[in-house]
């Protein structure tokens, strides 16, 4: 790592002030993306703003028809939360698929979303469930939040405080892992909430998480895996690397989408 100074603010306001003062400073949540990147000297923030001492960023609560998860909630907390398991069981399951048990004890939902790794799981859940990302400044719809690989709508000194998920009627997530990294080679999240049907894909897209309108339209007619039979998406715009060609990833999107719908309808 390169040298940096370490700040431990106790309020959100202090944290935001520190970030405003130093444009290159980085907020530190669980650190499980940032620190490995810094260790490899691929990032060199001169200042780290540790968010872990700020009160009120970790809670998980059900309010009306939305589940709200604090930005500093660890993956293990979400995975193990009876509230999440009751309200959106697939979200608890998804949190339990991130990284490995030790990583899940540190990694946070806010950190994951802010990083928007193109192979991360949470962005698929946010987009698939139509979540709202709440920051110290505003509320941002998931559809507007994820703006491309490793990029989001967050502005300088804007800090995610919580994520609000509307409760779906049916939802499922199918993840096909990159065998080496365990990240999603392709992950497909499907959700149905009234007439709102969403199919969100992570891992596959060259620009990060995305929705598949054609699949959503087909599922609106009938929410069944049969509705997706024979449907594919073009390989154009898919990631391609040694683990999966664009063609293979496009193929997996179809397979996993059908499997996710099957799981969601309990087949």
């Amino acid at each position: 790592m390169y040298a940096f100074t370490f700040r431990r603010p106790e309020t959100l306001r202090q944290a935001a002030n520190l970030l405003s003062k130093n444009g290159d400073a980085k907020p530190l949540a669980g650190g499980h993306t940032l620190l490995p990147t810094m260790k490899l000297r691929l990032a060199s923030p001169p200042e780290l703003i540790d968010l872990s001492r700020i009160e009120g960023l970790e809670g998980i609560e059900l309010t009306g028809r939305a589940l709200t998860i604090g930005a500093m909630a660890r993956h293990a907390d979400v995975h193990g939360s009876p509230v999440v398991q009751q309200a959106i069981p697939v979200l608890a399951k998804l949190a339990g698929m991130i990284g490995d048990p030790a990583v899940r004890h540190m990694g946070t939902i806010g950190g994951s979303i802010a990083n928007n790794d193109p192979s991360a799981d949470y962005p698929a859940a946010c987009l698939g469930l139509g979540a709202t990302i709440v920051t110290n400044k505003r509320r941002i719809k998931a559809d507007d939040f994820f703006t491309g690989m490793f990029s989001t709508a967050l502005e300088p000194a804007e800090i995610i405080t919580k994520v609000s998920f509307p409760i779906p009627k049916k939802a499922a997530y199918q993840k096909f892992r990159n065998q080496a990294s365990r990240y999603a080679l392709v992950g497909v999240f499907v959700a149905k909430r009234g007439g709102d049907i969403r199919v969100a894909v992570t891992g596959a897209g060259a620009n990060g998480v995305f929705r598949i309108q054609s699949f959503e339209e087909a599922l609106k007619k009938r929410f069944s895996p049969k509705s997706l039979e024979g449907m594919t998406i073009p390989a154009d715009g898919m990631n391609s690397d040694i683990h999966g060609s664009a063609e293979y990833r496009a193929h997996l999107v179809g397979v996993l989408a059908r499997r996710a719908v099957a799981e969601a309808v309990g087949k």
Partner: peptide
């Protein structure tokens, strides 16, 4: 809780 000590700063 189990944590990877290579990915945590002492100051955290």
């Amino acid at each position: 809780k189990a944590v990877k000590s290579c990915t945590v700063l002492a100051l955290q």
